[in-house]
Structure formats: structure tokens, C-alpha cells
Nucleic acid binder design. Structure first.
Lengths: 166, 166
DNA sequence: TGCGGCGTTTAAACTGTTTAAATATTTTAA
DNA sequence: TTAAAATATTTAAACAGTTTAAACGCCGCA
């Protein structure tokens, strides 16, 4: 942390806001990257690539989701999900089954191997989170989580075009 | 936000810790993704791709860094940086110049266009950060930043192999 | 029955990422 | 001084993620 500490000179006129929003943006990006880096180590032990963990986790919560649902939930576009699922199917973590009702739909299910993987990475993520919050008090962790979620909400509702929550 | 709110049943034995570290990991990943998504819109207006912003920002702080330094600072491997710099050089944001002292070294400098870009994205990042922290009090923003940095520190010092800070 | 809408998939094009190997240059040692 | 070791960049090959646009198939309604 040999960057700058928080408040620079602010030689321009408006000395109103010492906290730079840019710093926060930078910090969260950096932190997320570190987290992902650390996490990807454990993930790769389970045979997963970064980004695939979201799929199995999502499926663990509710099995048999459609690619479209998964894509929306995970914040990626449908073709991305198709690709990811394809790879994960080849790896044996999930399998596709057509929906009985609607012929357009494909549903994605966890395989036995996938279920096992969920447990494994669940533990890894837990450990990773614990490592990340070393020295945090209960309250701090809770606060961080809360602020993060509010921020997520702020960002997610950005007025650009289509922002369809489920 | 119709996910789950924070505490599930916890039907297994240990009802010790209601705060799941996994949730935090998930939240930060999600938030960072959203941030990056929003940010990339502004970035693309300046002609930058996600990931390139770090380079110009880093260069703005200290011009004439080597690819190796940049890579280390930005947490990527050298070949990645070579590629990124190559592209950015083609785009006209930076330029490479050999070091006078050491023939092995290449140093990367911001071009006039690159400098302009720094200003532009600086403002964008600021706006983006402001948006992200809508409704945050000064204190909350500060707390978040602090917690994020502690977390970054926790994660960055992970005992794997070579972890050389500058 | 035909046609529009919806969901998945395919295709094409980029970017980012890594490891391993190649190249060039500096530094060290004999 | 000459040869070997170390350092830094680059190249190459291989994967993964991402997006937009277009194709394909199925559902529903008129």
C-alpha cells in the first residue's frame, strides 16, 4: 500500500470532497481481482475455471435452470452461457436435458460430479472469504456486505437501456 | 435483488456463524463486475478496453515504466502486458522507447493522446464512483474504502510462491 | 395454417490470460 | 577478455470469456 493515502493536495478550488470516488472504484477492482486470483487457485483444483463456479453455485441453489436464466442471473449474455455450459458439459459437471413442456427450452442439471464439485468449491470459497476478512469483526464484515450490496444496487440500475430484473 | 437475504435455514448442526464468508466473496465479485460493466461504457467512449485503463492510470502516476513493472503493478504476467501495450501503442495511447542505460529495457510512455485519455477516463471513473456510492455518507464511503484495502492486503499476501511487492 | 415472438445455438471477431521458448543484453566469473 | 549466468522483452501456442448478429426450432395466437 505505498500508493497515496486518501487526501491529496486538491490544489484546485473545490476542496469539498477529500474522498475520491475514483479511489474506491480502483480499490474495489483491485480487491476483486485479488480475490479472483486467490479463488481461482482453489477452483482450478476442482477443475473449474473462473466464471464456471457461478454456474454450479447457481445450479446448486436451483437445479434445472435454463441457459437464459443462468445468463441473466450471472450477468452475462446468453451466447456466453451457452459456451460455458457446453464446456462444463464436456467436463462432466453439468448436463443438458430438454424441457418436457416447452420444446424451446433446455434445462441444465448438475451431475453427480458437479454436485461433488459444489461441495468442494463451497468450502474453498468459504476459506477464501475467511482469509479475505481476516481481522474483521463480525460487524465490519456485515457492514462491508451491506455496503457492497447497496453499491451493487446502485450500479445495477444504471439507466442505459434494458435492465430487466427477474 | 430477489436472491436470498442473508441467513438461510442452516439445517446442519453448526449454527454458529450466520454471516457466510462465501456471501461476501460472491458480493464483491458481483459488485466488481457491475462496476466494470458500467465503467467499460465510459471507457469505450475514450477508446479504451477494460484492462487498458490501468495502464494509462499507472503511467499517469509515473511515466516511462517498463512492461515488467507495469505487469507487476497491475497484477498480470509480462506477456499479457506486452500484448496490451502493443495494442495500446497501435491505438496511439502509449509509445515504447528503449532505455538509454540498459539495452534490455523498454520503457513505455504516454503519448499526447494518451494523456488526454487519462483526463477523460479520470473523470469517468470519478463519475462512476460517485454513482456507485449514491446514498453513501462520507463515513460509509470511507469505511468501505478502508475495509476494501484491508481485504486487499489480506489477499495479496497469500503464501503461495513469489509475492514481491515493489 | 401461417406468422410473429421467444429461447437456444452458431458464427465471427476481440480481448485477456498463461506457460514455454526464443532473443537480446547486461553482469559476473574465470 | 572471453564464456557463462542472469535479466527483460517478445513471440508462439493454447484456452477462456465476452459480445453482436444471424440462424434454427418451437410455442401461441389469429
Amino acid at each position: 500500500m505505498s500508493k497515496k493515502k486518501g487526501d491529496k493536495k486538491n490544489k484546485a478550488g473545490k476542496a469539498k470532497e477529500p474522498i475520491a470516488a475514483a479511489e474506491l472504484a480502483s480499490a474495489i477492482t483491485q480487491t476483486a481481482r485479488s480475490l479472483r486470483t486467490v479463488l481461482s487457485r482453489s477452483l482450478s483444483e476442482a477443475g473449474l475455471y473462473a466464471g464456471q463456479d457461478g454456474v454450479v453455485l447457481q445450479l446448486a441453489e436451483q437445479d434445472g435452470q435454463t441457459p437464459g436464466q443462468l445468463a441473466q442471473r450471472l450477468g452475462v449474455k446468453a451466447p456466453t452461457m451457452t459456451r460455458t455450459i457446453g464446456r462444463m458439459e464436456a467436463q462432466g459437471f453439468v448436463e443438458r436435458r430438454p424441457d418436457g413442456q416447452d420444446g424451446r427450452l433446455t434445462k441444465v442439471y448438475l451431475t453427480a460430479s458437479g454436485r461433488l464439485t459444489v461441495e468442494k468449491i463451497g468450502r474453498s470459497i468459504e476459506e477464501c472469504g475467511a482469509l479475505a476478512t481476516s481481522g474483521f469483526s463480525q460487524k465490519e464484515t456485515r457492514t462491508l456486505l451491506k455496503l457492497l450490496r447497496v453499491m451493487e444496487g446502485n450500479l445495477h440500475g444504471v439507466p442505459v437501456m434494458d435492465e430487466d430484473e427477474e
